[in-house]
Simulated scan of single mutants.
Amino acid sequence: MMRCHGFTPRPGWRELAAESGFDFHTTEDGHEVWSEASAYAFTLRQIEEDLEAPTADLFGLCLDLAAEISESPVLMRRLGIPDWAHALVTKSFRARDPHLYGRFDLAYDGVGPAKMLEFNADTPTALFETAVFQWRWLEDLRASGALPEDADQFNSVHERLVAQLGRIRSRVGDVLHLTCMTEFPEDRGTIGYLADCAAQVGLEVRLVDVADIGLHQEGGRSSFVDRSGAPVRLLFKLYPWEWMLRDGFGPAIAGASTIFVEPAWKMVLSNKGVLPLLWERHPGHPNLLPAYFEDDPRKFELGKSFARKPLLGREGAKVTIVTDGQVSAAEDGPYADSGYVRQALAPIPDFEGRRVVIGSWVVGDEPAGIILRESAGPISNDTAQLVPHFIQP
């Protein structure tokens, strides 16, 4: 089994977090995003066979599915992608526009097999917390003797991010704009961390708020520019594709020369419609859960217990858990008009009232590490806490 161990939090960890750029460890209402009162232990076999290998396999299945959907207007409509954006997705995948990272959310109790709950392919957060602060926790506990010197961690996220950004630079160019809605500390911290990674490979980085990106039109051609008027040729955006398509400048994206990271083809995989599509193509796959679109009569095969999820959604918004025909948990929020899927329930490990979901990262095309998220209820929402892990010697 996966084991939970209690630890004494490092003295001054909040100050250490702030010094290292993790100044969003506590929200304005006092909720701590990070907790190190406990940590989860894995064996090397569990990591390699039950988490790393399935993550690679699932990502391969997702790439195959993205290739299929990007050539199918019928499937793109099934996911709610507007008709005018179909060519954008198709062109992006055919060119294999470069991508950076994504995070699978997995249900896993230490025995397995791990089950895919969803794939956060477009704008996943908890990146800095995984790559930097979690690793620093491991180093500090080894140095203090709280963990053996040869305790390890499944965590090559930082190194793989730097390497992938280097590959993007060699293919695309030397100037990288990074954008988000900077009023949100977590988003601001994430793009700040990625800017540091990009600078390590020689990219010239420019951080801008989404609102400070404008559209310049001249001679019948459109281009995106920053507030200084400089062209935005390569843009990392911590801003969902579905929001971009709804914005006033959305239709101009197809004709602009900007290369987006994450690319347009990632909007396919960030849609929970991939859950039933994957199950339809790979029924019985050990790492997939049965899933169906809400308007598919086959949904009744799930019986009276299932999770109902919006096609587009984040932080558990509009997710409903039905157990034995009764609503046992539900989250309010936006995304109600995006359509829904039903997914079979996976048992989420419960450690003294803390439900634990594993976030398994893919950087480039490779598995890169994990972070764990504890929630008080069965739906992982914005009140969850990130907790570290280690590999037992």
Rank of each mutant, 00 (worst) to 15 (best):
G313V: 08
V341A: 06
G364R: 09
Q217S: 06
G220N: 07
S144C: 05
A368T: 14
R314V: 15
S380D: 06
P124A: 11
R96H: 08
V274G: 01
G30T: 10
R14I: 01
E149F: 01
I379S: 11
R221H: 14
F133A: 03
A264H: 10
P113I: 07
A85R: 04
A37N: 09
H86D: 07
H31I: 03
S70F: 05
V362W: 04
S156T: 12
I259P: 00
P286C: 11
R373T: 06
I259M: 09
S270D: 15
F7D: 01
F119S: 03
W265A: 03
A66D: 07
R171D: 05
T182Y: 00
V208L: 08
E366S: 13
E374T: 12
G219E: 13
R227Y: 06
G214K: 05
E129Q: 08
S20L: 13
S360Y: 03
D295F: 01
E118D: 13
C180K: 02
T190Y: 04
D174C: 04
L147R: 11
P251E: 05
A87L: 12
R355D: 01
G60L: 11
A53I: 01
L345M: 13
Y335L: 01
A121H: 03
G303N: 03
H5F: 04
L79D: 07
G353S: 12
H158E: 14
V201N: 10
G364F: 10
L278I: 12
R142H: 06
F22A: 08
R342W: 12
G12P: 10
C197V: 04
A126N: 09
K299H: 14
S170H: 11
I370H: 02
L65Y: 05
H389G: 03
A95Y: 02
V111H: 14
S305R: 10
S92V: 11
K304Y: 10
A37T: 13
Y335S: 02
L288D: 08
I358P: 00
I358S: 08
L386V: 01
G369D: 02
R354N: 08
W135E: 14
E218Y: 07
P276M: 07
R373S: 06
G255D: 14
V356T: 12
L302T: 08
L269D: 02
P367A: 13
V33P: 00
D50K: 12
H25M: 08
V162L: 10
L302V: 08
H25P: 00
L238T: 02
R227P: 00
W265P: 06
A307S: 11
P231C: 07
S223R: 15
Y239W: 15
G30Y: 04
D296L: 06
L138Y: 13
F154Y: 14
A384Y: 07
S170D: 15
